[in-house]
Simulated scan of single mutants.
Amino acid sequence: MLPPIETIVENFEFIDDWEERYRYIIELGRMLPPADEALHAEANKVQGCASQVWLDLGLDGSGGEPRLHLRGDSDAHIVRGLVALMVALFDGQTPRKAAETDAFALYTRLGLGEHLTPQRSNGVRAMADRIHRDATRMAAEAP
């Protein structure tokens, strides 16, 4: 199970060495639940990523106010870790809060833009844009 996003940020900032930070990101990816075949549907595939990335954003209304349920996967270890960052950031948020959250700001805060390839950066932006778009739609449809 993934730690809360605040814990991930604290851990990340505690690690000085970028090789160790990469290992931590990969470890976060390993903490994602195994993906079932339904997640790998074409409709869940994120366009604009160099690696294959799948995101499924749904609503869980079992606890009162509907909350996002985000699942994700990738065929690349480091990218699966970046997906895990998105899951930790958005899973359990209300659609409105998620629509107002700047996922790319987290990416920048962690300094990932300076240490990942431009293709990976574009992939992170594509994931963030997809989640923002879906959360915005869900927030607009909410009663």
Rank of each mutant, 00 (worst) to 15 (best):
residue 130 R to W: 01
residue 31 M to Q: 15
residue 72 G to Y: 04
residue 133 R to L: 05
residue 108 T to A: 13
residue 38 A to T: 15
residue 110 L to N: 08
residue 81 G to Y: 01
residue 70 L to G: 01
residue 67 R to C: 08
residue 44 N to E: 11
residue 11 N to T: 14
residue 14 F to S: 12
residue 98 A to Q: 06
residue 121 S to A: 13
residue 134 D to G: 00
residue 26 I to A: 12
residue 51 S to Y: 09
residue 117 T to D: 09
residue 64 G to W: 11
residue 24 Y to P: 03
residue 72 G to Q: 03
residue 8 I to K: 03
residue 67 R to W: 01
residue 6 E to T: 14
residue 82 L to V: 10
residue 79 V to T: 12
residue 136 T to E: 15
residue 47 Q to V: 13
residue 25 I to M: 11
residue 127 M to H: 07
residue 73 D to N: 10
residue 87 V to M: 01
residue 134 D to K: 11
residue 31 M to K: 15
residue 116 L to K: 03
residue 98 A to T: 01
residue 1 M to P: 13
residue 142 A to E: 13
residue 24 Y to E: 11
residue 7 T to P: 02
residue 30 R to N: 15
residue 132 H to C: 10
residue 14 F to K: 13
residue 112 L to T: 04
residue 121 S to E: 12
residue 50 A to F: 07
residue 59 L to R: 05
residue 69 H to C: 11
residue 113 G to Y: 04
residue 132 H to Y: 07
residue 127 M to K: 05
residue 134 D to A: 12
residue 109 R to F: 00
residue 115 H to K: 15
residue 109 R to D: 12
residue 141 E to G: 09
residue 45 K to M: 13
residue 130 R to Y: 02
residue 30 R to E: 13
residue 90 F to N: 01
residue 36 D to Y: 09
residue 92 G to N: 11
residue 19 E to V: 10
residue 119 Q to L: 14
residue 107 Y to H: 14
residue 8 I to P: 00
residue 138 M to C: 07
residue 61 G to E: 14
residue 35 A to D: 10
residue 78 I to S: 04
residue 66 P to C: 04
residue 143 P to R: 12
residue 87 V to F: 03
residue 95 P to Y: 04
residue 24 Y to F: 14
residue 55 L to R: 01
residue 131 I to R: 05
residue 123 G to S: 11
residue 73 D to H: 09
residue 41 A to T: 08
residue 99 A to K: 08
residue 129 D to I: 00
residue 72 G to N: 02
residue 143 P to N: 09
residue 12 F to H: 01
residue 90 F to T: 05
residue 86 M to A: 15
residue 103 A to E: 00
residue 31 M to S: 14
residue 90 F to Q: 05
residue 122 N to I: 02
residue 75 D to M: 07
residue 7 T to K: 12
residue 24 Y to M: 12
residue 104 F to D: 06
residue 88 A to G: 08
